[in-house]
Design a binder for these strands. Sequence first.
DNA 1: CACTCGAAGTTCCCTGAGGGAACCCCAATG
DNA 2: CATTGGGGTTCCCTCAGGGAACTTCGAGTG
Lengths: 150, 150
Amino acid sequence: MQRTKFGEMACSIARTLDVIGEPWSPLILRDVWVGISRFDDLQADLGISRKVLTERLNHLVEQGVIERHPYDQRPRYEYRLTAKGTELVDLLMVMTAWGDRWLAGEAGPPVLHRHHACGEISHVDLRCAHCGEPMHAGDIDPLPGPGTAP
Amino acid sequence: MQRTKFGEMACSIARTLDVIGEPWSPLILRDVWVGISRFDDLQADLGISRKVLTERLNHLVEQGVIERHPYDQRPRYEYRLTAKGTELVDLLMVMTAWGDRWLAGEAGPPVLHRHHACGEISHVDLRCAHCGEPMHAGDIDPLPGPGTAP
DNA sequence: CACTCGAAGTTCCCTGAGGGAACCCCAATG
DNA sequence: CATTGGGGTTCCCTCAGGGAACTTCGAGTG
């Protein structure tokens, strides 16, 4: 947990960090995405402290990124992505693409992604939602928006 | 700083978190991207502790994401994005898009982005680098890659 | 019914990272 | 020679993360 509250800044990056910026949160999201969805399974897969896992799951549920689903008469739950959380996976895919490109080293990427539409091993690329052309760091100008800080 | 080392995991998401996953790092990157590049300017803009800012800048320089450039005879430096860091801005753009969509609230997004190619206010969308079709959470299958853990 | 089991937390203590503020270094300037 | 200002460093204090033991509660077993 960061001591300074990012969620109150007038910046969508800072606000997003307030939702998934804490240590472990992106990895929890990754596990839930690939189907590791129960408390003990998450704890074993990540090697995270149980206390922190509890805190992170509660926070992600509060933020509406994942949901608790009972899967038994007994109080047993599994966690699933909401629509909000599913869209956050975009972030994970970009992190994967960057990590594969810059950090994988000799051995190559640990995981490959096959794209359903074309059947090829591929990765994500960023395009403008409006015109479809590439959209990267140098391709935009920032302008003050309606929600600018007072 | 996370106690557990993410960089040693066989996962590009975890490795990427080892580079920019610490508190403040994405916001430092954002500031450098938009041209806030000197120590005191960063410290003032972010409200971060000077100690932590020093640590983060050193780490980002070590990771090859930013570079120190002297801008005076005196020991004065400014920080600039490297190619590796410039590609990391993709991550910030996706965070911005998600935050704008899910967290901006009534007021709307605090910052707008005009795309050079089409001149419109827009945001990023994820496409397959191979076929150009949309590529989101449900559109891929993960497969073990060459760098899978032993 | 008493006993055990297992998932899902909860509690406790210890260490170490973040916040804040004061301090330091050093080249240029007046 | 004293001052200024950028770019850190140092020190102390608090609070978050790690680790491991403990708790809860319903289900299954003898």
